[in-house]
Amino acid sequence: MKPNYRRCISCRRVALKEEFWRIVRVFESRTVQLDEGMGRSAYICPQTSCLQAAQKKNRLGRSLHATVPETLYQTLWQRLAKSNHQSSNSS
């Protein structure tokens, strides 16, 4: 099967979609959530620089044509801290 490539909304890097976090604006409810749901999607690298730029410049909101709640950004920062903590423990 052909691999699925996506582009980060911050750094514009193209990679397999499994390498990114997916943020979705759900079709019916227009709510913004992480990882699952049918609707408009945006992808972002799990890196500090990409998350900072996305939040500061409202790249997620513009890409999804929706208001991104502050709680979603908090969840992404927590997820980033966890993944950084795990990768530093494994090395």
Rank of each mutant, 00 (worst) to 15 (best):
S10P: 00
K17D: 14
R79P: 02
S10W: 02
V24P: 01
R59Y: 09
C8F: 06
S88K: 13
A81T: 07
S63I: 01
Q55A: 10
K57G: 02
C8E: 05
P3H: 06
K17W: 04
Q47P: 00
C11D: 07
E19T: 13
Y73A: 02
P46S: 12
Y73D: 03
L34Q: 03
W21Q: 06
E18R: 13
E36I: 06
M1G: 15
T48A: 11
K17T: 11
N58A: 11
H85V: 02
P46K: 08
M38L: 14
A66Q: 07
L60H: 02
K57T: 09
R30T: 14
L80R: 05
N4E: 13
S41E: 08
E19V: 09
V68R: 00
T75R: 10
C8H: 06
E70P: 00
W77T: 03
A42L: 03
Q78A: 11
S29P: 00
E18H: 13
P69L: 03
S91A: 11
T48Q: 14
S91V: 09
L80Q: 06
K2M: 13
C11A: 09
S63Q: 15
A54E: 01
G39R: 11
V14K: 14
I44G: 01
E28C: 06
K82P: 01
C8Y: 05
I9V: 15
D35C: 03
T71C: 01
I23L: 04
Y73G: 00
S41P: 01
L64S: 08
N84M: 09
S83C: 05
Q33V: 13
P3N: 08
T31G: 05
R40H: 10
S88E: 14
M38D: 15
